[in-house]
Design a binder for these strands. Structure first.
Lengths: 252, 252
DNA sequence: CGCTTTATTGAGAGATATCAATACTTGTGG
DNA sequence: CCACAAGTATTGATATCTCTCAATAAAGCG
């Protein structure tokens, strides 16, 4: 785990390309300067490195600058559940606010960098900048909605449907960040996908093969190409947002 | 749906018995007066009545004064997922903050009353009262943690384990509110329990019967008595918090 | 290039779903 | 206050999806 200070101009929120997807949405340039003082440092993580563990005291929340992380929670008997995958601009560590200790574990799926948002300072600043406060509440709320869609997936969908919803959700989130959304590399293993979706790795594999046979997708290892979007949406039991602008994913 | 104004003294946060479980935790008496002006009205709901629907504009969040509600989310094909059950002191409607529209539907499971917290006014007040802001963030964060434990349940536990975890979670939450925690009435139907746990109603029934046979519980319709707490904890794969004070439920 | 990890595919087992019949509750109206 | 109807819950028999176990293949890594 490697710390970087904010001397480099690119590390400031005010000039960060992620600004529009991250915490400082809609913040005026004068207020942005204040945020720059808040987010001074970053952490570089190699694949497999842990950002925080269950029970660690909450000092900061983090925003993903680049890379991908997973959060997971484990039972004592070793069973683990992947809770979420986190793309650039998304905030991590929010579950630590409740009682001052992180309630999950965050691990990098590839080389990644996260900005450190010192939490106590942040709460103060949010009070001074109403737009920042509002944005923070929106982020927390959307996180809730995201988890609730995930619950729907695990509680009501069959394996095939879960996987389709997962791929579409990923695609939508990549699109919202300006990445290619019909062709991308999965940053997570089959094991991690399976854990996230509450199914076994073998089932993930089989379903992916089935999708490929049906011409819904093309897949070569972790590189995936979505061919028949409509077909996938239908499979997932979701309406295709078609040409409407996807602000937030509908499920997964 | 019946509106009640706050003329009755009992409707004020400052004198509400739920104060210590609700939003105003740790608020000084002078600040409490301000909150009283915020929470002016309440809504009385009969069993089956809807508090808000998916897509309704967010005007307020709600705290449960008495009774029980469920929140759920439905697919177009009719499949529904119960997301949560909400006891007195818990806050409802938080998923509406993200984009200004509720992302789920809230329905009373019995005659219930909720306090109306006008959201725009609330954000202003939270800025003025730091403790209120902190408490609100904690509530949002714990909601996230609760949903994440629920995800673990749906993703990693077998039917039997999910049900045991559910009963224990309910028991803990009742205990935290000063209710009897080893004997209580389920406010939700088997269908609703099944939906919440991602299993079929018949499976719920069978597992309950099996628990009763094993001497873990006694059950007569919706009245349930937890006999062997340790056994249930073991079944759920969770550590028994024993005589430690349960602040927040561990899973469900 | 060989070793370890990761992914695919097949065969059989098992947990839960589905279908079906019965019993119990609750509410309503005579 | 009883009788009936509608809703809710239990229990059984069978079907099905997904898991588990196993073998093979492919990819990443030193």
């Amino acid at each position: 785990m490697n710390y970087t200070s904010s001397d480099a101009p690119s590390s400031k929120c005010s000039v960060c390309v992620l600004g529009q997807f991250c915490l400082p949405v809609g913040i005026s340039s004068s207020d942005l300067a204040k945020i720059d003082t808040l987010v001074k440092d970053r952490v570089r993580l190699q694949k497999g490195e842990t950002l925080y563990r269950y029970g660690d005291p909450l000092n900061a929340v983090y925003s993903v600058r680049f890379g991908t992380l997973k959060t997971e929670y484990g039972l004592e008997d070793g069973r683990q559940q992947v809770i979420g995958f986190h793309l650039p601009g998304e905030i991590l560590g929010l579950d630590g606010i409740g009682n001052g200790e992180y309630q999950s574990e965050a691990i990098a799926l590839e080389e990644s960098e996260v900005c450190i948002i010192r939490y106590s300072a942040f709460e103060d600043l949010a009070r001074q900048i109403p737009v920042l406060q509002q944005q923070f509440h929106r982020i927390l709320s959307r996180e809730l909605t995201q988890d609730q869609r995930h619950l729907l997936s695990l509680g009501s969908l069959r394996a095939e449907e879960r996987l389709a919803a997962f791929l579409l959700n990923l695609s939508q989130r990549l699109a919202a960040r300006g990445y290619q959304d019909n062709e991308f590399d999965l940053r997570m293993s089959r094991v991690e996908i399976g854990s996230y979706l509450g199914i076994q790795i073998e089932t993930v594999s089989r379903m992916l093969s089935r999708f490929a046979e049906s011409g819904l997708i093309q897949i070569k290892q972790r590189h995936i190409k979505l061919i028949d979007l409509d077909g996938l949406y239908e499979l997932a039991g979701l309406p295709n947002p078609e040409r409407s602008i996807p602000i937030r994913p509908v499920a997964a």
